[in-house]
Amino acid sequence: MALRGQSSSVPLKISIVCLTLAISCGTLFSLATGGRTDVGLADIFRPEGMARTVLFDIRMPRTCAAALLGVNLGMAGLVLQAITRNPLASPAILGINQGAALGLALGVVLPNTIDLPLDLYALTGALTAGVVTFAISGGFGGKIDSLRLVLGGVAVGAFSYAMVRFTYTLDDDIARSVIRWTVGDITDIRWSETKRLAVWAVPGFLASLVMAQRFNLMALGQASARGLGADPRITLLLGTIVAAALAGASVTVAGPIAFAGLIVPHLAKFLFGGDHRVLTPTTALLGAALMLFADGLSKTLTAPIEAPIGVVAALMGAPWFLWHTIFARDVS
């Protein structure tokens, strides 16, 4: 009942074929491209040697990381759009991306003040930004207002990124480090970082799946959701935590990546309709496909120098954002 009228106009079979093709082609594109032009997919069958090392030690963890980033960011975007009932919501809305970037910038600029790994600085920044946004939205008073959540996130994000931009004017090596961390970059990802992403992606995905029906009820409005037995405050709180954790984990590994969390849920809704029980797995897979393509493009667009995946994701996402802003019937 809740989802009547929200089904996709695209036949299910075509949607499934599109999704399967996108995942397969994205994976092959990401694996086949890299810093060495003499290493290709055929080398995967070599029993040993440099080419095999490149594929298994360098490219595979990076391909998996790109896919997991897509899963995390897509899920985070889907959850945020559901709880705020705002189609333009994305992880950046909580200021988490920018907060993590500020944490990283502080870690680079003040390395001798508190001797902690840069990841921890990023995670602290992400959590702080999330908590401040949450507080501004009235979350600690047990009454989260979705508009205040959006405005609070924009304010926290703007403040954080203004501070980050200040570090660009400092020393070259400091600026280089900060830029490398804040543009969204996975050039030096190995299996250890991939595992860290997976550790967050799996519970995040399961939590979203469990909450899928709550998100469906939120689509009817807070009063209706409450009437149907799903307290919207709990949905808001749990959703915010899941989105913050998924986005924060991604930022600590790859830096902030914009637009992926925004456009993937829309693509999923276009292909599979509005039921979050279907949207949750399909958004995860579409997010993975998008980031796999972005990874392949990041290695080929400006070869031999790699473009950061965050920049490529933004190049892919910005036109969608503009189109949606200009032509969408309801962006309130």
Partner: peptide, 21 residues
């Protein structure tokens, strides 16, 4: 680079895979 051109950039960001080449 593989196509025989020299790098135009003076300072080239380099990954381990590129360094191995």
């Amino acid at each position: 680079p593989a196509d025989g051109d020299v790098y135009e950039k003076v300072y080239v960001p380099t990954t381990l895979e590129q360094l191995s080449e």
